[in-house]
C-alpha cells in the first residue's frame, strides 16, 4: 500500500468533516475520491499532506507516518491544488522551474524536466506568458505542470478540472492517464463522476466525511439494484398506468414528474421493450425515449438517497 488511512477523524468545531475514514491506495493505480462538495475530499487530501490537524487516526504514506517535517516522503509527492497556486510575478517557464527546483537541485536535470512538463501540458507557446494573461484552462494546465514537473511517485490532484473548458479538460485527463502509465500513482478528487469513471482504476465515494462505497466502477455499479434506467418524455399517464408499470417484471422504482416518466429496473434484458409495449397497448402517445446503464450517480443516489450533484 502506498497510502494507508485508518480511522481518520477531523472536526471543524461541531461539524465532523472526516468520520472514521479508512482508505488504502495501491501503488500504480489512479485512485478516485468522488463526492459532492463538502463531502470531505479536500479535507482528506490536506490531512494526507500534513497541512491539517486531525483529531484521531493515522496516515501512513510509503509506510511512514506523514508529518510536516517528513521531507523524505514529501520529496516523492507531487501536488496539484484545487486553487491554482502559482506566482503571478513569474512567467510560465519560471513558475515550473521554481516548483521543480523545490525537489530537483541539479540545474541540467531540472531544465530537462521543465521542458518535458511544458510539452506535457501543451504550454509550449506560452512559456514567457504571465499567469494573469492565461485563460482558466491554460492556468489549470500550468498548475498541473508545477505539481508534476519533478516526476513524483505519488501525485495528489484535487479537482484539477474545475472551471476548465472541454478541450483543456480532455488534455488534462489524457495527461493524468499518461502520468499513470509512466509509473506515478495518482489520487484524484472530483465531483464530476464522468471524469472519475473515465480515468480511475478504483473509486471511493465519499459523503459526510465517510467512505460509503469503494471499488472499481463496475464493482460499484454491481453493488446497486439499478441495472437500467428508462426515461420517457412527453407522456400523459394516470395513476392506474403508473401502478401497472410498477408491476412489470424487474421494475423496482417508478417516478413521474412534469410529463416525464423514469423507470428504474434491475439488470435484466427487454425492460425498455416491455414498457413501450404497455404504452402502445393502452394507446398512450409519448415523446423521446432514453435507456441508460447505471452511472456512479445511480450508485450515490441509491446509497444516500440524493443526487451526486445536489
Amino acid at each position: 500500500m502506498i497510502i494507508k488511512i485508518e480511522n481518520l477523524v477531523k472536526r471543524y468545531g461541531s461539524l465532523v468533516a472526516l468520520d472514521h475514514l479508512n482508505l488504502e491506495v495501491k501503488e500504480g493505480e489512479i485512485f478516485g475520491l468522488l463526492g459532492p462538495n463538502g463531502s470531505g475530499k479536500t479535507t482528506a487530501i490536506n490531512c494526507m499532506l500534513a497541512l491539517l490537524k486531525y483529531d484521531r487516526g493515522s496516515i501512513r504514506i510509503f509506510g511512514e507516518e506523514m508529518a510536516p517535517d517528513n521531507y523524505r516522503v514529501k520529496s516523492q509527492i507531487g501536488v496539484v491544488m484545487q486553487d491554482v497556486a502559482v506566482f503571478e510575478e513569474l512567467n510560465v517557464q519560471d513558475n515550473i522551474d521554481y516548483f521543480c527546483g523545490l525537489y530537483v537541485k541539479d540545474k541540467n536535470k531540472r531544465k530537462e524536466l521543465v521542458e518535458e512538463a511544458v510539452r506535457f501540458v501543451g504550454l509550449e507557446e506560452y512559456r514567457k506568458i504571465y499567469p494573469k494573461k492565461l485563460s482558466g484552462g491554460l492556468l489549470r494546465r500550468l498548475n498541473i505542470a508545477c505539481g508534476i514537473a519533478h516526476k513524483p511517485r505519488l501525485i495528489f490532484m484535487d479537482e484539477p478540472t474545475v472551471a476548465v473548458d472541454p478541450q483543456s479538460r480532455n488534455k488534462i485527463l489524457e495527461g493524468i492517464c499518461e502520468l499513470n502509465r509512466q509509473g506515478s500513482t495518482i489520487v484524484y478528487t472530483s465531483h464530476y463522476m464522468e471524469e472519475v469513471e473515465q480515468i480511475c482504476s478504483r473509486i471511493a465515494i465519499m459523503d459526510h466525511g465517510r467512505c460509503i462505497a469503494l471499488g472499481t466502477s463496475e464493482e460499484l455499479k454491481n453493488m446497486i439494484k439499478t441495472g437500467e434506467t428508462v426515461t420517457i418524455e412527453a407522456v400523459i399517464l394516470e395513476e392506474e398506468d403508473l401502478a401497472r408499470i410498477r408491476e412489470l417484471p424487474h421494475v423496482f422504482d417508478v417516478s413521474y414528474k412534469d410529463g416525464t416518466l423514469t423507470v428504474r429496473c434491475t439488470g435484466a434484458r427487454h425492460n425498455l421493450l416491455r414498457i413501450l409495449e404497455y404504452l402502445q397497448s393502452r394507446k398512450i402517445p409519448f415523446g423521446r425515449v432514453f435507456s441508460e446503464l447505471p452511472t456512479l450517480n445511480d450508485v450515490f443516489l441509491e446509497i444516500t438517497g440524493k443526487q451526486l450533484r445536489d
Binding site: 490536506n46 499532506l49 523524505r72 514529501k74 491544488m81 486553487d83 497556486a85 523545490l102 525537489y103
Partner: peptide, 15 residues
C-alpha cells in the same frame, strides 16, 4: 493564508 503557501508547505524544503 494562501494557496501558494500551502503548495510550498508540501514541498520537501526545510522550514
Amino acid at each position: 493564508l494562501t494557496a501558494l503557501a500551502a503548495r510550498r508547505c508540501v514541498a520537501p524544503v526545510h522550514r
